[in-house]
């Protein structure tokens, strides 16, 4: 019951959406939908991507789409999935959650855990722009260490966000689901491949996609992709898969960049280059990046087989 190939609209997130120019998250969604095709049901949490795409009466979505609340997208998706089963329509399409980092790692945590543990056939995708952008760049559990946000501002007594990023993929993986992966909008082919894998898994799958926000992070809108790649090249965003509980396919970085290359281009880290003691903080961030490379490399194994579908 696949929609005919030629009937498929190419861009399933239509133009005219109101994302800021150069929005990494909007591009992420564009690429997700290119990878999935039209046969998906999207449950979207409250946040930037919901707001920029759904001001009544204009919708940017060309796939069936629902937004209910901030923290319940995983539960709404569970509802769609069981309804499709109950109505004998489960061949119609795959249920996909698209949610921000706040809606995922913070307020949506409980609903996600429930969805994963119950084993719903839902692909959960978190676009990670590392803060609550919709409400004006407040810190989330996914905000990186030392990033200055509106609720974790730097100041005389603060270097910004004083906690490291929550390791959500590990938490998700602990639910024992078949497929967990991270990707980045800076690597479209990787992203496409992983989205396709994630939707082909039967049962829950989780994908967290790094999606720079030029407005909140403070960089030139042209550099969204460049910044995304730098995050990977510096080791501040790791790209990997966890297949059946095993860490595999950690993306190799041929030439590791110093973290300064990434930090110095963003307003949210600018204070580290000006404040007394900033250097030591940058060193901490470098240590974190090095640690990332080492631990992921040590744990990683190349994937042996195809993912079970």
């Amino acid at each position: 019951m696949q929609a005919k190939e030629e009937e498929r609209p190419v861009d399933l997130l239509a133009s005219g959406h109101r994302a800021c120019a150069g929005c990494g998250a909007a591009l992420t969604i564009q690429e997700i939908l290119r990878a999935t095709g039209a046969n998906v049901f999207v449950a979207n949490s409250t946040g930037c991507m919901e707001i920029i795409s759904s001001q009544y009466p204009q919708s940017a979505w060309k796939v069936p789409w629902i937004h209910s609340l901030f923290e319940n997208a995983a539960a709404v998706a569970s509802g769609i999935e069981v309804a499709l089963k109950a109505l004998g329509r489960d061949e119609e399409g795959k249920v996909v959650v698209i949610a921000g980092d706040g809606g995922t790692v913070d307020i949506g945590m409980q609903a996600i855990s429930g969805m994963l543990e119950r084993g719903h056939d839902v692909c959960y995708i978190c676009y990670d722009n590392e803060a609550y952008m919709n409400t004006g760049n407040q810190r989330s559990g996914s905000t990186p260490f030392d990033a200055s946000t509106t609720t974790s501002p730097f100041g005389k007594k603060s270097f910004g966000n004083d906690r490291p990023k929550k390791n959500m993929p590990a938490i998700v993986a602990a639910h024992g689901i078949a497929y967990v992966a991270t990707s980045s909008v800076g690597y479209p082919r990787d992203l496409t491949k992983k989205v396709q894998k994630a939707v082909s898994v039967s049962g829950p799958a989780y994908l967290q996609i790094h999606a720079p926000c030029n407005v909140g992070w403070g960089f030139d809108s042209a550099k969204t992709i460049e910044i995304a790649r730098l995050a990977v090249e510096t080791g501040l965003w790791m790209m990997y898969e966890i297949v059946d509980g095993e860490l595999v396919n950690v993306m190799k970085v041929s030439r590791q960049q110093p973290v300064e290359e990434y930090l110095k281009q963003q307003r949210r880290f600018a204070h580290l280059f000006k404040m007394p003691g900033g250097e030591a903080q940058i060193k901490l961030i470098q240590d974190y990046a090095n640690h990332n490379f080492e631990t992921y490399k040590a744990a990683s194994r190349e994937a042996t087989g195809e993912i079970q579908t």
């Binding site: 049901f41 449950a43 629902i66 319940n72 539960a75 709404v76 569970s78 509802g79 769609i80 109950a86």
Partner: peptide
């Protein structure tokens, strides 16, 4: 795992036609 989700599941399912 909660009543919040109970109602949310109903929303998703009902919107799907169940």
């Amino acid at each position: 795992e909660s009543e919040h989700s109970a109602m949310s599941v109903c929303i998703g399912a009902s919107a799907t036609g169940a």
